[in-house]
């Protein structure tokens, strides 16, 4: 109860009614990438849709989806698509992430979410989990699991969003 009371006090200070007049980007996070750099989502919004793929080195269907994600990245990144693969490997298997990505020559950005905090923030529970975010930072679509052909649905969605952004 004590921390709830603290929370209540904090909220009453921070949130006056007027702060809800304009809607702002709902989704944001900062994670480390496999090379130790920092990646902040809000710095990559605005230029086009963002496709986030949550995966882990022990997840077989996640790995099956990766070659298709690489093709999407190669095909649409210049048009504005940002593709991010977020590994939820815990620290105990985190060292396996980089070999997996580098040895297969994947060139999309790979981030680390060792406590699955961002996965939970986006309401993901099982892997693989994919989320499409529009340039304003809103979740447009999310999907759990991978079967061959799912990448076609993703591609159609991304093409539509890129077209919409151009207009």
């Amino acid at each position: 109860m004590r921390y709830l009371t603290s929370l209540l006090i904090l909220l009453s200070i921070l949130i006056p009614s007027s702060s809800f007049a304009d809607k702002e980007a709902a989704v944001d996070f900062t994670l480390e990438d496999v090379d130790g750099g920092l990646f902040s989502l809000k710095e990559h919004l605005g230029s086009g849709p963002v496709l986030i793929d949550f995966w882990a080195t022990w997840c077989k269907p996640c790995k099956d989806a990766m070659p298709y994600l690489q093709k999407l990245h190669e095909k649409y990144s210049e048009q504005g698509l940002t593709l991010i693969a977020v590994s939820t490997d815990s620290p105990r298997s985190q060292s396996k992430v980089k070999p997996f990505i580098r040895s297969r020559h994947y060139t999309f950005k790979v981030l680390l979410d060792p406590n699955s905090e961002v996965l939970k923030q986006l309401q993901g529970r099982n892997l693989p989990f994919q989320v499409i975010i529009d340039k304003d930072g809103r979740v447009v679509e999310s999907h759990t699991g991978y079967s061959p052909g799912d990448e076609k649905i993703l591609e159609e969605k991304i093409k539509g969003m890129l077209l919409q952004d151009e207009q």
């Binding site: 921070l14 949130i15 702060s19 809607k23 702002e24 980007a25 709902a26 923030q121």
Partner: peptide, 19 residues
């Protein structure tokens, strides 16, 4: 049964975003 709900607030007088 597992239920999760989140609210996001932005444009705060103090801070960028509250979840």
């Amino acid at each position: 049964g597992l239920f999760t709900a989140e609210l996001f607030f932005s444009k705060l007088p103090v801070g960028d975003r509250l979840r």
